[in-house]
């Protein structure tokens, strides 16, 4: 009896969350369909396109949000490293499914492995004398190597779906993915909002932060984990090879525009959303790779801003 009561709340929470997700997707569908009808843009009514837009809406926010704390510390490669290890996570999930019939959602596999890799990078830098870029390179290649070996172990059985993880795809974001994506985006946004001050302090002046007894190691670990969340969120659309761009390019664009740090974060989000929405639309209209389109639009935005600033001065 007591056991049943103890199990009730988690069940209830799950029910409420799935209910919320359903309600959310219906609302989103309603909104998109209305726009689709009003504008005559049919593709806005397709559920898979709606999910693609929803995912770029999320990653356009969390990418630059977290990236702002990486770029100015020369940690831009952290995103790329975690993305490549997340690929190993996908491979592990597919491998378990193919060989042992244990169904693990690939994104969950990616998240778990990316978080472990984030902690591993921290440990390598702190407890060995490895330089951080060498540590990153080791974890990056190690993760990717593990992924490729696992794939080859199944005799090519799971390699069919691998391309979409490498290069990203519009059509593969499932309903379950969207649930995970939206929740991860919320977690990241709330975490950054709560830990904003220690994150800014450590980003700007790590030594002074340490002297002021800010727990720099905890902040760094949090940042790595948040990066892992972002990378996994964006992986489906962007592909592991390109996912890091969304942590970096909008931030660099915004650094030219922003006056204050807060302002530059907002500009970064605007740049990220623009790249995401324009990239997904172009990818659909011209049948292009989604990740590549988003990254090229983002870089185009950077060039446009740089040229614009040069002209206006």
């Amino acid at each position: 009896m007591t056991a049943a009561i103890e199990f009730l709340p988690p069940l209830l929470v799950v029910n409420v969350l799935t209910g919320l997700l359903d309600w959310f997707l219906v609302a989103v569908d309603g909104g998109f369909s209305w726009v689709a009808e009003a504008t005559g843009l049919q593709f806005l009514g397709y559920p898979y396109m709606q999910r693609a837009y929803l995912s770029v809406l999320c990653i356009g926010v969390v990418g630059p949000l977290v990236g702002s704390f990486l770029v100015y510390r020369d940690l831009s490669m952290v995103g790329d490293t975690l993305a490549h290890t997340a690929f190993a996570g996908v491979a592990v999930a597919l491998f378990l499914d193919a060989t042992l019939s244990i169904a693990v959602p690939p994104l969950l596999g990616a998240l778990v492995v990316a978080v472990i890799a984030a902690l591993l990078v921290q440990a390598l830098v702190e407890y060995t004398d490895a330089r951080s870029d060498a540590a990153l390179a080791m974890v990056l290649t190690g993760g990717f190597a593990l992924g490729s070996v696992l794939i080859s172990l199944t005799g090519g059985g799971i390699s069919v779906g691998i391309n979409q993880y490498l290069f990203g795809s519009l059509a593969t974001v499932s309903r379950a993915d969207i649930g995970l994506l939206v929740s991860m985006a919320l977690v990241v946004a709330v975490a950054v909002a709560v830990a904003y001050r220690p994150l800014v302090f450590v980003t700007f002046d790590e030594t002074a932060a340490r002297a002021s007894r800010v727990h720099v190691r905890v902040v760094n670990t949090l940042l790595s984990i948040l990066t892992a969340f972002v990378v996994v969120s964006a992986m489906r659309i962007m592909g592991v090879i390109l996912v890091a761009a969304l942590l970096v390019v909008p931030v660099v664009t915004a650094s030219r525009l922003g006056h204050s740090f807060k302002q530059s974060i907002w500009y970064g989000i605007v740049a990220g959303e623009f790249a995401g929405f324009a990239g997904v639309t172009l990818a659909y209209l011209f049948g292009l790779a989604a990740g590549g389109s988003i990254v090229l639009v983002a870089i185009g935005g950077f060039v446009a801003v740089a040229v614009g600033l040069r002209v206006s001065h």
Binding site: D205, T207, A211, H259, S260
Partner: peptide, 18 residues
């Protein structure tokens, strides 16, 4: 305690912060 390290100005140059 307040500490102004030697390398702090490097970061200050690039980061948009008031």
């Amino acid at each position: 305690i307040a500490y102004v390290a030697q390398d702090v100005t490097d970061a200050a140059r690039d980061m948009p912060i008031t």
